[in-house]
Amino acid sequence: MQRETLINTVLTLGLLAVPLAAWAMDEPYTITLATKVVIFALAGVGLNLALGLGGLVSLGHAMFFGIGGYAAGILASHAQSYEPIMEWPFLIEGTQSMPVIWVMAIVVSALVALATGALSLRTSGVYFIMITLAFGQMFYYFTISWPAYGGEDGLSIYVRDRFPGLNTLDPLHFFGLCFALLMLGLFIVARISRSGFGLALNAARQNEARVRAVGIEPYRLRLIAFVISGAITGLAGALYADLNRFVSPVMFSWQTSGEIMIFVILGGVARLFGPVAGAALFIILEEVLGGVSDYWHIYLGALLLIVVLFARGGLIGVLAGRNGGGGHD
């Protein structure tokens, strides 16, 4: 077994063990923290597909996180008030069923990623960063000034949405649900990065002219990657809304985009489990250092600097050593 595979296995088991131990010791707050790690990790897994494999430095992934969140919030609020979202030309009612909300979050995120990606992928480098940032901010200011769904105050989900056969109000059940989705997301991204599409996308990041010269259009690869990436981060946003039972424009803010990017960079860009390690480290730091000082972000910043300067592979890179060829055998 490769060293990285071993580390990934340990991470997965650790992520499972913590909430189980917390449940045994009756500490629901720790279970909630672990759930937060899982959800943030899933958001990072989405970004990592675009950023790590595709080299697309998107500072607008809060857009998808927020869309997922508001998909959950809007559908749930209509279900709570028994007012349909629209009656004409056809009836759309609110729902508190998680699977329906997830599908909605994924579809809307994917469509928005398709539209914004089609435009922003015509640029590259700093311009791409700026355009994705601008799209994200557009959504942020739109939700702030949209009174129908709480505007700046956000929107509460009074009762957590439901999943058939589970009691989602039980923290352990909800954790299990999020954990299963994270594993599914990791599996999908692992398959994609080992596929022909992944090989070509990764090659386009390294050398665009090479990919064109073999007759493959990088733009198309990147757009598809951006859509899948946005959809995964959107799903994470829907889960985050249900974790907090609250959504607000903050989910759309550029700080959220930055945080998702921090998970990826801390854990290891282009490493499959990078976002998992990064999100775990982030939450641990927030809990430990946040208790010591309100200004714990200073230490986070210092750590981030060290990672960027000396450990480009992030936490996974430090533990597993050099990546042997982008995950391909």
Partner: peptide, 8 residues
Amino acid sequence: PGFWRPVM
């Protein structure tokens, strides 16, 4: 290129 089958 396909999305699912390991290319190598």
